[in-house]
């Protein structure tokens, strides 16, 4: 997810920096060793789990490692409960769905995004149980899966810890509360960022059952669904998401964010541009 130049200009102006200096950094921050485009064969991340991943998610569909799908993640996770990951698959053209997963997590799948009427660029934070490749797989219209990813090193333990929320009563009053804002001209169009109060318990901490957001939908003022997402246990507590949306999307009225968790609690919020 590359912020468009206006966003950089905003930041740079605020910091008093020359924009030219800022430009290469998104590329530089992409920590993966860039695989050559359309390399069909070996996993560039050299993960012993790759064959399992391939069988589990892609079966007989064609799979290519493709540096047109950018995964920005830190080389080393300072906090295994909150590993920031940004994905930009817009260079692939029309993308039907993007799957985010971590080979060595006890629950591998983290997020599935369908950019129905939006650029395929988004961000999230996830929990990592141990060092692992973090991958994004984008399916294009021809049925091919394009893979990008990066290794993230971590001290681990992110998935088997109780959420902080499970130790306090606060989330019970604020469950599914949404804080959100739309930034025109950031990313590939306008950027929506949102934070939802939710413990996102994985079910792997003793005595605490799985409790997590399952679905999210973002619709424009006319009710057209722009992005549909399916979230899984490894998404961090009180999740924060970024979604790039078409430019000028706020013109048709407030955006609507709707969803629910696995206990049927609803999420429903409006975002005024």
């Amino acid at each position: 997810m590359k912020p468009a130049h206006p966003a950089r200009r905003t930041v740079c102006a605020a910091l008093g920096l020359a924009c030219a200096a800022a430009l290469p950094f998104v590329a530089a921050g992409r920590v993966l060793a860039a695989a050559p485009a359309l390399q069909p064969g070996a996993d560039p991340l050299d993960s012993s789990r790759w064959d399992d991943m391939r069988r589990a998610f892609f079966a007989d569909a064609p799979v290519v490692f493709d540096d047109r799908i950018a995964v920005t993640a830190p080389f080393s996770a300072e906090d295994p409960l909150n590993v920031p990951v940004a994905i930009d698959a817009t260079a692939l053209g029309a993308v039907r769905e993007v799957l985010v997963f971590a080979d060595f997590n006890p629950i591998v799948k983290a997020l599935r995004v369908e950019p129905l009427a939006a650029p395929a660029a988004f961000g999230l934070r996830l929990k990592l149980q141990q060092s692992s490749p973090v991958r994004a797989a984008a399916r294009t219209a021809d049925g091919t899966w394009h893979l990008g990813g990066a290794w993230v090193r971590t001290s681990g333990g992110g998935c088997t810890l109780p959420s902080l929320g499970s130790g306090s009563a606060e989330w019970q009053q604020r469950l599914n509360e949404v804080g959100a804002r739309l930034w025109p001209g950031v990313g590939h169009g306008d950027r929506l960022r949102l934070r939802i109060v939710h413990p996102m318990d994985t079910g792997l901490a003793p005595g605490i059952p799985a409790f997590h957001i399952e679905t999210l939908e973002i619709a424009d003022g006319a009710g057209r669904v722009l992005v549909r997402a399916e979230a899984f246990e490894p998404v961090s507590e009180n999740p924060v998401f970024s979604f790039d949306l078409p430019a000028g999307i706020g013109a048709a009225g407030p955006l609507r964010i709707r969803g629910r968790d696995n206990n049927g609690n609803l999420i429903d919020a409006e975002v005024r541009p």
């Binding site: 997810m1 912020p3 966003a7 905003t10 930041v11 605020a14 920096l17 200096a21 800022a22 950094f25 998104v26 530089a28 921050g29 920005t72 993640a73 830190p74 920031p84 990951v85 940004a86 961000g123 934070r125 804002r181 930034w183 950031v186 990313g187 950027r191 960022r193 924060v240 970024s242």
Partner: peptide, 12 residues
């Protein structure tokens, strides 16, 4: 300015 955390990490 609406940056994601992963993008904030890449600032100079």
């Amino acid at each position: 300015s609406g940056l994601d955390m992963a993008e904030a990490m890449t600032l100079p």
